[in-house]
């Protein structure tokens, strides 16, 4: 506020002089400075804060990962790649990696496919369009914690609604939490439930940019609506699909709250079940960094490895989808 009163005061002074103020060298220099420096001043808060609380910690993780660094001791010996070799020979790490990839695949693929179909329906001129769109987005409003808590109840072994439905359909009860595959399915359902509508809206936005005439001529050629979706819409919104695949993958590789709360009581949350059947990479990181021993060096090696995996997966996604594009 203090800044914007000054030019007003300056203007008043020149007006009192009664002649059109000749721009003095001092004011001119101030004007030039304002013009030159302002943009940098305005973007500076973003870059400064992002660097301090985002980029620097991430980069510094690499440095910490090369030390025997614990919160409980002041000695921080440089150990080179020792943390990484220890990590790569820990079966629990590979277990967590496998679980993460499995949950990721189980949640992302059906979720994005469903989102595509939903978006396809939403492109039509529906009655109550806003109502349907809001309903679709409703799950996204709930927090991951809320989602995990609610679905842990639904997937409960004894009193869960899902098992009750299964039983009344004549199928047996499933102990969702104990089995590896079943726990992965339950967690994937949580993720998909929260994000399908959100992705559908993103696809819808992209689909609305596709000109209608293409569909009309496709219809005259006898293409069904489903064929239109996969032969016309999907190729035309491919950049958006690439975007959602990459974003979902980055999100999926960092899943934490769902398995942690699905594990529920006490230590089972951190280990992702009693036999680590659904411990994800972020849970593994959390276990080492904040749950026992505060092994910051080792946990940083986990974080940096995850970073590498994320970059790799994003790159593979990108290349894979580009290949499809050039092939078709």
């Amino acid at each position: 506020m203090s800044l914007d009163t000054r030019p007003a005061a300056a203007k008043r002074r020149t007006a009192a002089d009664g002649r059109p103020a000749p721009i003095g060298p001092w004011r001119h220099r101030l004007y030039r400075l304002d013009l030159k420096a302002s943009p940098f001043l305005y973007i500076a808060p973003f870059f400064a804060l992002f660097a301090a609380f985002g980029l620097f910690p991430l980069a510094f993780t690499a440095w910490v990962s090369m030390h025997d660094w614990s919160l409980l001791s002041d000695e921080r010996a440089f150990v080179g790649v020792e943390n990484y070799t220890a990590l790569l020979s820990d079966p629990y790490f590979w277990n967590a990696l496998a679980n993460t990839v499995s949950i990721l695949a189980l949640s992302t693929a059906p979720q994005l496919l469903a989102a595509l179909l939903l978006a396809h329906l939403l492109t039509m001129r529906l009655r109550g369009q806003t109502f349907f769109r809001m309903g679709m987005l409703l799950p996204n409003v709930a927090s991951v914690v809320a989602v995990a808590v609610i679905f842990s109840q639904l997937f409960g072994r004894d009193f869960g609604l899902v098992n009750w439905v299964l039983e009344s359909l004549g199928a047996g009860r499933i102990d969702w939490q104990t089995g590896r595959a079943s726990s992965h399915v339950a967690i994937a359902v949580m993720v998909a439930w929260k994000w399908t509508g959100y992705n559908a809206l993103i696809y819808l936005a992209a689909m609305q940019a596709v000109p209608r005439e293409i569909y009309e001529s496709a219809h005259l050629d006898g293409a069904s609506r489903l064929q239109q979706l996969f032969r016309i819409t999907v190729p035309m919104i491919r950049p958006t699909i690439v975007f959602t695949v990459i974003v979902s993958t980055i999100y999926g590789l960092q899943i934490f709250a769902e398995p942690q709360l699905f594990g529920g009581a006490g230590p089972n949350g951190v280990t992702g079940g009693s036999s680590r059947q659904f411990q994800t990479l972020t849970l593994y990181l959390y276990e080492h960094a904040f749950n026992r021993g505060f092994e910051f060096g080792y946990a940083s090696a986990v974080a940096w490895t995850m970073f590498a995996v994320i970059v790799l997966v994003a790159l593979l996604n990108y290349l894979f989808i580009r290949r499809i594009r050039s092939a078709s």
Partner: peptide, 26 residues
């Protein structure tokens, strides 16, 4: 300006959650 804007867009993809350990030390 252009380069800096590209930098902004690029940072949208950075998984900053992975920097929690140094952030905690900070």
């Amino acid at each position: 300006a252009r380069v800096l804007l590209v930098a902004v867009v690029a940072t949208m993809m950075v998984p900053v959650q992975l920097g929690v350990i140094p952030l905690y030390m900070l």
